[in-house]
């Protein structure tokens, strides 16, 4: 119930913005190749999703996103854990990976297209490449944030390294890891769209570029809204995961600690 009313405030802001948009388009007679009216965007969305044209684009982007995200985040988890846990791996890998991080990954997009083709593979690779870094860095930071006194305690009671990894380091790093995964959603989406901009015959990015070339801004905004929806849903899913997994970082187990009032 509380969550519902909480959502009301940003939704109000959204409604005001949309109204202002519609009003200014009508008042100032803005041509629709500069800014379409809301109804035109709605119409484009309706056509897209009810008549079905958008679905294959959405499906393409989503598929690229999911695969790339799973691969990039999975590799980040494993490699991050190895770097944090094994000194030798850290020495060989860490500086290299951090150096790569400062390369804008988007600049690699044309190269990735050349290597992996116009199909979905190149988009998967781009998404994986981009969403790898935030998770990788956060895994390492998370592992390093674990209280050494707790690790000492586990050692003192005879725990193996493996047990310490599973019972202490992973849960201790969970919050930081999920935060990295959250950033990864948004960045990964950028990777997918950029890949589709450069060379693709499908995907929401392709749809945007195509429609923009034809000055069909209704469709452009429709596709952007679809991308925003993917990003918001993904982020919210991870927030929910955060709340479930890292329950000890809040007041109580079922949310903020509640007080029982009597009388």
């Amino acid at each position: 119930m509380r969550r519902l009313t909480d959502a009301l405030y940003p939704l109000t802001t959204l409604a005001v913005l949309l109204l202002a948009w519609e009003a200014s388009v009508r008042l100032f007679d803005v041509p629709n190749y500069i800014l379409p009216s809301l109804s035109q965007v709605g119409e484009a969305l309706w056509r897209g999703y009810v008549e079905g044209e958008y679905w294959r684009h959405l499906g393409f982007t989503l598929t690229a996103m999911l695969w790339g995200y799973a691969i990039g985040s999975g590799v980040a988890l494993v490699l991050g854990a190895l770097v944090a846990e094994i000194r030798l791996v850290e020495r060989f890998v860490f500086a290299f990976v951090v150096g790569l991080q400062s390369v804008p990954k988007v600049a690699l997009a044309p190269l990735v297209i050349v290597w992996f083709g116009f199909g979905i593979e190149s988009k998967v690779v781009l998404v994986a490449l981009i969403c790898f870094f935030p998770t990788f860095i956060n895994v390492i930071a998370g592992f390093r944030s674990v209280d050494p006194a707790v690790v000492d305690m586990m050692h003192a009671f005879g725990a193996s390294r493996r047990r310490i990894l599973w019972e202490v380091k992973l849960p201790g790093a969970a919050s930081s890891i999920i935060a990295g995964l959250q950033v990864g959603v948004v960045l990964g989406l950028i990777g997918a769209v950029v890949g589709e901009f450069i060379a693709s015959t499908r995907g929401l990015g392709h749809l945007i570029q195509n429609a923009a070339t034809n000055l069909d801004l209704g469709t452009v905004f429709g596709a952007i809204a679809s991308l925003a929806a993917i990003g918001i849903i993904g982020t919210q899913l991870l927030r929910a995961l955060q709340r479930r997994v890292v329950f000890w970082e809040r007041g109580g187990r079922g949310g903020a600690a509640s007080v029982v009032t009597e009388g």
């Binding site: 000492d152 009671f157 005879g158």
Partner: peptide, 23 residues
């Protein structure tokens, strides 16, 4: 230890059982 050094993600019982599990 001077600090409790409990695992925040485990119940009191599971925390107390750490040496038993580890050994």
């Amino acid at each position: 230890f001077q600090q409790p050094t409990l695992l925040p993600w485990q119940t009191v019982l599971d925390n107390v059982l750490v040496p038993a599990r580890s050994q």
